[in-house]
Every structure is written in C-alpha cells, then in structure tokens.
Nucleic acid binder design. Structure first.
Length: 637
RNA sequence: GCUUCAUUAGCUCAGUUGGUAGAGCAACUGAUUCGUAAUCAGUAGGUCAGCAGUUCAAGUCUGCUAUGAAGCUCCA
C-alpha cells in the first residue's frame, strides 16, 4: 500500500506503484488536464515517473515553474530532433529551458539561417503531431560514454566524462531520437501545443571564450496557442519601450558613429538629467554626504598604486602630458582617496561620506555596447565612505536604505546579489571573510532577499549589487556597495583613534543610481517616455487655437516660467487637433488649450496626456496644481 | 572581442531575375485663422555607410572596414 499526500493535504491510497500522470488524471476531472510535470518530495519529475513509496506529490501545470520547465525542456528536445532529421551531420551540445523559453546549442559546419529556422519549425510541427512518447532509460557512466561515442556526439561524451565514475546516466527517447538528459519532460511531444523559434545567436561551448563558438537557436513554448500569442504580443509591446527608440523619438540623446559608446545628451535629455542630479544631491545632503569633484586625467603612477594597473589596465584609456604618462580615470576612488589623505582625520569625524558625480571612461568590448545601458563614458553617482571597522554594518545598512528609498520613488522592483571573492583579487583571506560577512549581516538586517554570486566581487573587495529590469526583462546592475580593505592599505590611509594612535579606516565604494546614463535608460523604459510631471522635460504646453490667443498665451508662458514650470508654446499656424496630436506624441503631461473663449474669460482649458479633456479652470488654480505635482517627490521624502 | 544578421532622404520604410533611386512623415514656401490625435498645394532633399573587386552595366553579386541589432564572453 502506497500513500500519496497531495498539496492540499488529501491522502490517496494505491495498491501498487503508480505514475504521476495516473494520479493527475485521478485527482479530478479536467482540473489537471494541463498537468506538465510532478513534484515528488520537492523534486521536479516527469509525469511518467513511477511513485513506488509513500510520498508528497504536487502536480505542476504551466503556471508552475516546474511545469514550464518540463514543457520547454521537451520543446528543446523536439528542436534538437528536428535539426537532426534535417541535418544529421550536426553535433548537439546542450539544450535547457530558460526563463521565458528554451534554446539548443548546435555545432554545425555551416551557418544556420533564418530560412532554415522555418524548415526546422515545420519539422518540429511534425514531431508534435506524431505525439511521440518520451521514454526514460539509464546506462552506467562508461556505457553511456560508449553510447554517445557511437552516435558521434562529442559534446555529450565530454559532459558525461565530467560526471563521477559510479554515476548512472539517464537518457530520454522520443521516436528515433535519444538525448542525454536528467529530465523532467512532459509525457509526449504532443503536449507542446504552441511553440516558436525566436532567434539565432552564437554562444561559446560551456560559456568560455576559449572554446569553440556554437550556434544557438532560441525559442519559446506554451501549453496553449493563446498564451504564446499573448507572449509574442507582449514582446512586441515591450520593444516599443526601448530607450534607444524613445530616446530618438523624444530627442533625449543620440549616439554617433564618430564616438561609439559615447552618448550625446540633447536639451530635453539634459533637463531630465539635471533634475535627477538635483534630486540626488538633495537626498545625499540629507543622508550626511559631502560632495566633491576630482579630475578625469591623473598620473599613471596613481593607478599603479591603486592596483588598477594590475587588474584593470585592459579597460583603461591612456594619454601623455608633456613627457609623463597619464590615465583617464575608469573609477573615481583614487581621486576620493587623495582628498581624504589631504589632511589628518580624527575618529570623531568618522564616518566621512564623500559623494562625487564622477565622469569615468572604460574601454568596454565593442559587442557589449548597448544604448545608454552599456557605454564607454558615463557618470557614476559615486561615493566613498571612510569609517572605523565597527561602523561597517550601520553604514552599509544606511546605503541599502537610501537605495531602497530612491528606487521606490520610481516604482522599481529590484534584485540584490552578494558577490564574493574573485580569482584575480588582492588582499588577505581573513579580510575578505570579514568583509563578506559584514555585507551579509547588513543584508540580513535590512531583511532583503539576495542571491549569492560566487567569485564575482571586485578585485579589492566583495560587493552587494542592485539589479533593475529593462523593458524586455534583461537586468542591469545599477546600485552597488563595495567593501574595501585594500585601498586604505595601499594608500596608507589613517585616522587618529581615541588612543592617540594612527589606525586604518575601512572604505566603502557605492553607487545608488549606478551610472546616470544607465539609470536614465532604465527610467525611459520604465515610463515608456511618459515621465512623471516632476521629471518631464516639458511639463505644460500652451496651444493657442488661433493667433488671436497668441498674446494671452505668451502672458501665461511668462507666469509659468516665473514659477519654474517647464513650459512650451506652439505658436505655429496649425490646427488645434494637429498641435494636440504632436504634444501627445511628445508625451507632455499637460496641455493648455487657448481659444477665443479662454481669452475672453481669462481662464484656461486643460487637457492631460493621461486623462484627456479636463475642462476649464482658473489659471491660478492650474498653477497651484502644477506646483503641487512638482513638489511631490520632495514631500515624498 | 566572438557568431549571425543588418545599414537606401532628418525619421519610418519600398526597391522585381544586376539595366545608375521611390513613398509617407518631418523641413522649406504659399494659401488657410480653424476648438481636443494629422488643412491643402508646391519646393527642396540621396556619392544607396565607406573602400576595393566581378561585370558592358552594381542599391542589388564578392571581399575588407566602420557602425548598429540579438546572443555569447566581459563588466573591479
């Protein structure tokens, strides 16, 4: 007798081992017809897995991670099978499911073209229609190696060879196709009701650029056609928010062949940028920061001392002044350190929080450049905090809270990662351990969920990173908090403690926005260009219906400008409908329509971008409404 | 940097099997003074990214370079 406990606590009894799908069918009619996988005692398994002892069982449908995983994983096998049918000579690498779909890496000695993808999709359709059952079988490791060798699948052989001697290797078979695989899968290929191949890309075997580059086919799969359509539509919509597209349409910034990765900011982009910086300054003054500005070009010797020469040279730009070698700063820390070192410091002063909107240049790989998100010259909203070791936790916690507050203002959700010691790093093990532990404690104290990113820290210390999402779900590192025991050592930083002796301070490097450029990219995508009133480059646009209202419009323009409202005036001889259309496309939050009626009554007709016609009101009433919206972020603080 | 793909007017895009470029919007000029998402007419605008090659002939075919896109690698 086997007892199977379901998620809702119900217990089912079976005489003999049953398959997950049998249970799914039995629990209730229809309810689990979309079952795609099971979860036995916490482990995701195929629907065909036998349950042979008492277990907790959960049936996973497409809504569950495990269900999606099984479906998409099967889709990737169908992709591989189709490719093998059409091009038997190719070698298969790996084909996992990923967040929104799946891919398969293929080694072919010809280029896979978009036209071929169409053929492959057709073949996949056939395989789905054939409704082939997926059958699991196992082989001991050595037999498994021989088996894959006989199929000429070199990559599979390499994968198995990396597994322990006594490992039992599982395979899945669907029709004539078998693949090394740990599962889980849906029971038959027919379950994959809706799929689409999306794009082609190169990808290094095992993710190392030292290895061969394979061809990767990306796709996505759903259990219903309507879900697939919805997803594709969502992708289309998301692309309309792309900051590169909106930045051009709204004349915020531009990029030119003459300076790849060096963005040009236009007047409207500068308005947003300046407001953002003002806001940043205000917040930082309140949080106890002092602002500094340090030079962009500094003597090369400084970079030897900081360790950047040894660890970051490849990404730096260099220049000469007279006969001496100089470097363009890729980071602001040495500048901040020189300011600190310029005088003696008492423990009474600590922590010293020194902020800098610092322009840095980094030689990023050409293929890594991406709009404003990844550039070669950018302004970090940097700050360096010098403190006693006992202050670490509180200071880090303070930065976490400041970051959270600022991100919340924009409605961002974010992921946090803790990155630990990388291979190419400097410093003592015990310092690294202490630093990493301090960051961990601060994260725990802030009650923030975080992911550990092994070996991804800076060369001088571990870090906490804040990642924000762009319009299609790619994440970008923005805020960062980096603990550093090395630079204070290298630059012999000191403070005089209570005991009258020199002591070594600890240093934190941190950014909240990350870079102004990247943050603006994220902002543009977050709002799809329709910025909140306080950030909008033009907040109000005055639209006279005929030139009889021009004088009145100019009068109002002056009054609005006096109150620091950013105002636009459209005096062109165009129809009002046309002027409204353009202002709407410019995403101006408010329009003031001025015709004979308004001139006569000395009032204003308001139209909001969001809500349309708001009717007429007194000008003063509108003005105080604008002032109020403008101050929203301030009262928010 | 790597793989694949792309680059035609300021912008968005057409351009058949190779036979030396076209639309809409924008700009400019004129008319129109009009009430909540495009008034009408006209004018001007292009070494088809650049350089080389194949050809009687190249926007179209080939190679190189630059830039861009997707992904990989990198991102201290």
């Amino acid at each position: 007798m086997i007892n199977i406990t379901l998620k809702d606590g119900k217990v089912l009894e079976f005489e003999q081992p049953v398959k997950v799908e049998d249970v799914a069918k039995q629990i209730s009619m229809g309810l689990y017809k979309n079952a795609l996988a099971g979860k036995i005692n916490g482990e995701v398994v195929d629907l065909t897995t036998e349950i042979d002892k008492d277990s907790n069982l959960e049936i996973l449908a497409f809504e569950d991670e495990g269900g999606k995983h099984a479906l998409r994983h099967t889709a990737s096998h169908i992709l591989a099978q189709a490719v093998k049918r059409l091009y038997p000579e190719v070698k298969l690498a790996i084909g996992p499911s990923i967040e929104n779909g799946f891919y398969y890496d293929i080694d072919a000695d010809f280029s896979i073209t978009p036209e071929m993808l169409v053929d492959i999709e057709k073949e996949m359709d056939k395989i789905v229609k054939e409704n082939l059952p997926l059958e699991k079988f196992v082989k001991p490791r050595n037999e498994a190696i021989e088996y894959e060798k006989s199929k000429n699948e070199d990559y599979k052989v390499e994968l198995i060879e990396d597994l322990p001697e006594d490992e039992i290797i599982s395979f899945y078979k669907q029709g004539e196709f078998t693949d090394l695989c740990a599962g889980p899968h849906v029971p038959t290929t027919g379950k994959v009701k809706a799929f689409k191949l999306l794009n082609l890309a190169g990808a290094y075997w095992r993710g190392s650029e030292k290895n061969k580059m394979l061809q990767r086919i990306y796709g996505t799969a759903f259990s219903k056609k309507s879900d697939l359509d919805e997803y594709l539509k969502m992708l289309e919509e998301a692309k309309k928010r792309d900051h590169r597209k909106i930045g051009k349409e709204l004349e915020l910034f531009s990029l030119h062949e003459e300076g790849p990765g060096f963005p040009f900011f236009h007047p409207k982009g500068m308005v947003i940028r300046n407001i953002l910086e003002d806001y940043w300054r205000r917040e930082h003054v309140k949080a106890g920061y002092k602002e500094i500005k340090t030079p962009i070009i500094l003597n090369e010797e400084l970079w030897h001392q900081s360790g950047h020469w040894d660890h970051y040279k490849e990404n730096m730009y260099f220049t000469k002044i007279d006969e001496a070698d100089y470097a363009i700063k890729p980071m602001n820390c040495p500048g901040g350190i020189l300011v600190y070192k310029n005088q003696m410091h008492s423990y009474r002063e600590l922590p010293i929080r020194m902020g800098e909107l610092g322009l840095v240049h980094r030689h990023e790989a050409s293929g890594a450049l991406h709009g404003l998100m990844r550039v070669r010259s950018f302004t970090q909203d940097d700050a360096h905090i010098f403190m006693m070791p006992s202050q670490i936790k509180d200071e880090v916690l303070g930065v976490i809270k400041l970051t959270d507050k600022i991100y919340k203002l924009f409605g961002f959700e974010y992921n946090v990662e803790l990155s630990t010691r990388p291979e190419n790093s400097m410093g003592r093990d015990e310092d690294w351990e202490h630093a990493t532990e301090s960051l961990r404690e601060a994260l725990e104290a802030a009650d923030l969920p975080y992911k550990i990113n092994e070996g991804d820290g800076a060369f001088y210390g571990p870090k906490i990173d804040f990642h924000l999402k762009d319009c299609i779900g790619r994440t970008w590192q923005c805020g960062t908090i980096q603990l550093d025991f090395q630079m204070p050592e290298r630059f012999d930083l000191t403070y005089i403690a209570e005991d009258g002796e020199k002591h070594r301070p600890v240093m934190v490097h941190r950014t909240v926005l990350g870079s102004i450029e990247r943050f603006m990219g994220i902002l543009i995508e977050q709002y799809a260009g329709a910025f909140p009133v306080w950030l909008a480059p033009v907040q109000v646009k005055l639209l006279p219906v005929t030139d009889r209202a021009n004088e009145y419009a100019k009068e109002l323009q002056e009054k609005l400008e006096e109150s620091d409202i950013r105002v636009g005036l459209d005096l062109r001889n165009e129809k009002i409908g046309y002027k409204i259309r353009e202002s709407q496309l410019e995403k101006v939050p408010y329009m003031i329509i001025l015709g004979d009626k308004e001139v006569e009554a000395r009032n204003v007709a308001i139209r909001s971008k969001k809500d349309g016609d708001l009717g007429t009101m007194e000008f003063d009433a509108f003005l105080s409404k604008m002032k109020e919206e403008n101050d929203k972020r301030i009262s928010n603080l």
